[in-house]
Amino acid sequence: MQGGVQGPLAGYATTMRVVIVGASGNAGTALLRRLRTEPDLDLAGISRRKPPGSGPYADVPWLTADIGAEEDADSITEFFRGADAVVNLAWQIQPSHDQRRLYRTNVLGSRAVFRAAITAGVPTLVQASSVGVYAPGPKQGFVKESWLRTGIPESSYSRHKALVERVLDTVESDHPTMRVVRLRPGLIFQRDAGTEIARYFAGPLFPRGLTRLPVVPRHAGLRLQAVHADDVADAYLRVLRSDARGAFNIAAGPVLDADVVSRAFHGVPLPVPGLLLEGAAALTWQLRLQPVDRGWVKLALKAPLMSCDRAAGTLGWRPRTDAISAMRELLTGMADRAHTGSPPMTDDPGRPGRFGGLLRGRLPGQGNPY
Results as ranks from 00 to 15, higher is better:
G356T: 10
A244H: 02
I152S: 04
R34V: 08
R166Y: 02
R294L: 13
P344W: 07
L43P: 01
T211A: 06
L276A: 14
G109N: 05
D192L: 12
G357M: 13
V122P: 01
A338N: 01
A65D: 01
Q290T: 08
G333T: 03
W62N: 06
D66S: 15
L240N: 02
Q366D: 07
E78P: 06
P217D: 13
L283S: 14
Y200N: 08
R48G: 00
S156T: 10
Q290S: 01
V272W: 10
S146V: 11
R238M: 13
P185S: 09
P39H: 05
S307Q: 03
A311V: 03
F201L: 04
R159D: 05
A44W: 07
V297P: 03
R208C: 12
S155D: 09
L256D: 01
S262K: 09
R238Y: 13
L168M: 09
E196K: 15
R191G: 01
H160S: 07
R263L: 13
I67G: 10
A90Y: 00
Y134K: 08
G194F: 06
R33K: 11
N106I: 11
R34E: 15
G55K: 00
H339R: 12
A252H: 06
H339S: 05
D72Q: 02
P273A: 13
A27W: 05
P153Q: 04
A202L: 09
P61R: 07
L301V: 05
S130A: 12
E165R: 02
A44D: 02
F114D: 02
G253S: 09
R337T: 12
Y236N: 02
R199M: 04
G221M: 00
P39E: 07
I250V: 15
P204A: 07
R115V: 05
V126P: 00
G333R: 04
P207V: 07
C308D: 02
I93V: 13
A244S: 12
I118Y: 01
R115N: 04
A58W: 03
A65G: 10
T195M: 15
L256Y: 01
V126D: 04
G25V: 06
T170N: 13
Y12E: 15
L35D: 07
G194D: 03
A229L: 11
F114C: 02
L359I: 04
G137P: 14
S242N: 12
Q290H: 09
L270N: 09
F265Q: 05
D84L: 12
L210S: 11
I197H: 12
K298N: 13
S24P: 15
L305H: 00
L363W: 09
S129T: 14
P352E: 02
G186L: 03
D336L: 10
A251N: 03
R81A: 00
P204K: 08
Q2S: 07
P273K: 06
R328S: 14
P269Q: 15
I20Y: 06
D257H: 11
H175D: 04
V260F: 15
L240Q: 00
G333W: 11
E329T: 14
P204F: 06
G3S: 10
G68M: 01
P254R: 13
R223C: 09
G350D: 11
A229C: 09
P52T: 08
R238T: 07
Y57Q: 04
G55S: 08
D309P: 14
A117H: 02
S173R: 15
L331D: 00
K161G: 09
L224S: 00
A258N: 08
S342N: 02
D348I: 00
A128E: 15
R263G: 07
S325D: 08
T29N: 00
K298T: 10
Y57K: 01
V19I: 14
R115A: 12
